[in-house]
C-alpha cells in the first residue's frame, strides 16, 4: 500500500525520543509537538471541518498520544502512528458535529444516453495539468475542487487517496460498510474529474 504518511512524515527512528516520552518527559513531549504538530495540523485541516475543529483535533490527538505512548511498541513508525491518531481524532470531530445539509453529488457524475454511451464523450487532458501543478495557484485550484465535494464523499477520497488508508481501514474509521467506501470513493473521483475537466476546458489547468 502506498502510504502518504510514510512520505510526508519524516522517518524518525527515534527510540530514544520514544523512551523519553514513555518516562513522561515534558521536554520530549514538547519536541514531539514541535516536530510533528505542523504536519498533524495539516492532516486535520484537510478533513471537512472548521479551523477550530482542526486545532481541537490536534489537541485531542496529542492527549491520546500521551495516554497511549506507553503502549507504543515501535513496530510502526512514530510518524505513521501519529498520522493514524490525528486522522481518527479528526473523524471523531466530524462525527460529533451536526451534519450539514449536504449537496448531492449527482450533478457531478457522468451522464449516459439511453443506449449506454457517454452523453458527453470524454477527451484526453494531455500532460498540461501535470506541468501546471508546479504552480501553487494551480494546486490551490485543485484543492478548492476537492473542498467543494460533499463532505461524505470528500472524507472518503481524502482517507483513501490522500491519507493512504485501505478500504477496510477507511470503513472502520468512518463506521460504514466497505462497500459504501468503494462506492463513495468512485463517485468522489468521478465528481472531482468533472470539476477538473471543466477547469481544463476553460484553460485554467
Amino acid at each position: 500500500m502506498l502510504n502518504t504518511a510514510d512520505k510526508t512524515m519524516p522517518i524518525l527512528e527515534e527510540p530514544s525520543l520514544v523512551a523519553q516520552l514513555q518516562t513522561g518527559s515534558h521536554t520530549a513531549f514538547e519536541t514531539l509537538v514541535r516536530v510533528y504538530g505542523g504536519r498533524m495540523l495539516a492532516v486535520a485541516q484537510r478533513m471537512p471541518s472548521s479551523e477550530s475543529d482542526a486545532a481541537d483535533a490536534v489537541q485531542e490527538a496529542f492527549a491520546s498520544v500521551f495516554r497511549a505512548i506507553r503502549g507504543f511498541s515501535g513496530n510502526s513508525q512514530l510518524g505513521t502512528w501519529l498520522h493514524r491518531i490525528v486522522v481518527n481524532a479528526s473523524l471523531m470531530k466530524l462525527r460529533s458535529r451536526q451534519r450539514r445539509n449536504e449537496q448531492s453529488i449527482e450533478p457531478l457524475l457522468p451522464t449516459y444516453l439511453d443506449d449506454g454511451h457517454q452523453a458527453r464523450p470524454a477527451t484526453e487532458w494531455g500532460e498540461s495539468p501535470h506541468a501546471a501543478m508546479q504552480r501553487e495557484e494551480t494546486r490551490a485550484l485543485v484543492r478548492s475542487a476537492i473542498d467543494s465535494l460533499p463532505d461524505s464523499h470528500r472524507t472518503v477520497l481524502l482517507l483513501r487517496d490522500i491519507e493512504g488508508l485501505n478500504t477496510e481501514e477507511a470503513a472502520a474509521a468512518l463506521q460504514i460498510e466497505p462497500g459504501a467506501v468503494k462506492v463513495r470513493l468512485h463517485r468522489a473521483r468521478q465528481a472531482l474529474r468533472t470539476l477538473l475537466d471543466e477547469q481544463i476546458q476553460l484553460g485554467k489547468l
Binding site: 495540523l41 501535470h130 477538473l196
Partner: peptide, 24 residues
C-alpha cells in the same frame, strides 16, 4: 483522466504539506 484525477489530487495536497512542515 480518472487516473490523472487521482494523481492531481495527491499532488495538490502533498505539496501543501511540505509548505506546512513547520507551520504550527
Amino acid at each position: 483522466t480518472y487516473r490523472q484525477t487521482i494523481t492531481l489530487g495527491k499532488q495538490a495536497i502533498c505539496c501543501d504539506d511540505e509548505k506546512a512542515l513547520h507551520d504550527i
